[in-house]
């Protein structure tokens, strides 16, 4: 009973002392705070700081705006890139089919592209030389003369 009473009393003392300490610490600087409040150039310094902060925020906004524009343009740029890639890929495929002298596709053999038009299909891997062409022309002429 006595121990409980003593514990309660100690706790009460601690409580009172704690409050007093908080008050002392908080009220010790009132004179310093008053001096700061009475400082003559306090507003000028605040104004300078506000201007600097406004400039900083404006700079940040510009940067954010640019970032936003870039971010919005990403899908469009990706679409253009995909389209360009597809275009390049298909055109390169077409070139391979028509320009490679050694490779002959079924399409070339069947002459599917120019149906109805007579064309010469060379099945040899060797490309024609100018002498071959001249010899062919001369042969055709001789054949006509012999008729």
């Amino acid at each position: 009973m006595i121990g409980k009473h003593n514990k309660g009393e100690t706790s009460e003392r601690l409580e009172r002392l704690g409050r007093a300490i908080v008050r002392v610490s908080a009220e010790a600087n009132e004179a310093e705070a008053e001096a700061v409040a009475a400082s003559p150039f306090l507003y000028a310094r605040l104004r300078t700081r506000i201007n600097a902060e406004a400039e900083r925020r404006a700079g940040g906004e510009t940067w954010l705006t640019l970032l936003g524009v870039f971010w919005r343009s990403v899908p469009a740029m990706a679409l253009i890139a995909v389209f360009a890639f597809v275009l390049f890929w298909t055109s390169s495929l077409g070139t391979t089919t028509t320009t490679s002298p050694g490779v002959l596709s079924d399409e070339a053999f069947m002459d599917a592209r120019d149906a109805g038009i007579e064309s010469v299909v060379f099945a040899e891997r060797r490309p024609l030389s100018s002498d071959d062409v001249l010899a062919t022309i001369l042969r055709e002429d001789e054949r006509e003369v012999s008729r």
Binding site: A28, N29, E32, V36, S39, L46
Partner: peptide, 24 residues
């Protein structure tokens, strides 16, 4: 505002910093 800052900080620079920060 100065008095509120003075409740927590002792140095004059700290108090002024809080005043400027608060009003900004």
């Amino acid at each position: 505002v100065s008095l509120i800052a003075g409740r927590f900080f002792r140095q004059r620079e700290q108090i002024e910093e809080i005043v400027q920060e608060s009003f900004m």
